[in-house]
Amino acid sequence: MFDTIRKYAVRFRVSPRAQAPEVRERRAHNLFEAAAAYVAACAEDDQDRIDEASAWVSPEALSFGVSELACRAVIALARERDVSPHSVARDLLGLPAA
């Protein structure tokens, strides 16, 4: 919970809206770019990149993007392994087979 609050507070500190116009990035990131960067940074435990990707879009958009990425990853792994998405999801979470 405190990690979520910290991420939320960091977003205000580095928000593109809070920066001077000359400091803002020239290109807006979409929610899927933000989700991909965020998940990759989390996997590599890179807090600087996590904070950067979190600032690209709203928390709600990032949450949606991460959820969509998870769904697509589970479907891709299920097709690759020739098993059901349900089995892949449980396996990734370390849950016993249902």
Rank of each mutant, 00 (worst) to 15 (best):
R24P: 05
A73M: 12
A53M: 03
A53L: 02
A20L: 13
E22W: 12
S63H: 10
F64R: 14
H86D: 13
L92T: 01
H86Y: 08
D91L: 11
P59Y: 00
R79W: 01
R24S: 09
V57G: 04
C42K: 09
R27Q: 12
R6H: 10
H86R: 14
R11T: 13
A36Q: 13
N30M: 07
F64A: 10
S87N: 07
A78E: 08
R72T: 06
V74H: 06
E25W: 04
S58L: 05
G65C: 02
A36H: 10
E52T: 05
V88Y: 01
R11G: 04
P59W: 00
R81S: 07
L93P: 05
A73N: 10
E52M: 05
V83E: 11
C42F: 01
T4I: 13
V39L: 04
R26M: 08
A34D: 01
F32C: 00
F32R: 13
E52H: 08
D46N: 14
S15I: 02
A41I: 06
L93F: 09
T4M: 11
E68F: 05
Y8M: 14
I75K: 14
G94T: 04
V57A: 03
A76F: 05
R13M: 12
S58Y: 02
P21L: 12
G65K: 00
M1L: 09
R6G: 00
I75A: 14
P96M: 04
D51M: 00
F2D: 15
H29L: 08
S84T: 15
E68M: 10
S84W: 01
A97Y: 04
Q47S: 07
E80S: 12
C71R: 13
M1P: 08
V57S: 02
L31N: 00
F64S: 07
E22C: 05
A40C: 02
A76C: 03
L93V: 04
D45I: 09
V83R: 06
I75E: 15
D48P: 00
R72Y: 03
V10C: 05
L62W: 06
S63G: 15
Y38M: 05
L95I: 09
M1G: 14
A34N: 03
R27Y: 10
L92C: 04
I50W: 01
P96E: 13
A34W: 02
V23M: 15
P21R: 12
F12Q: 11
H29G: 04
R79F: 02
V23Q: 15
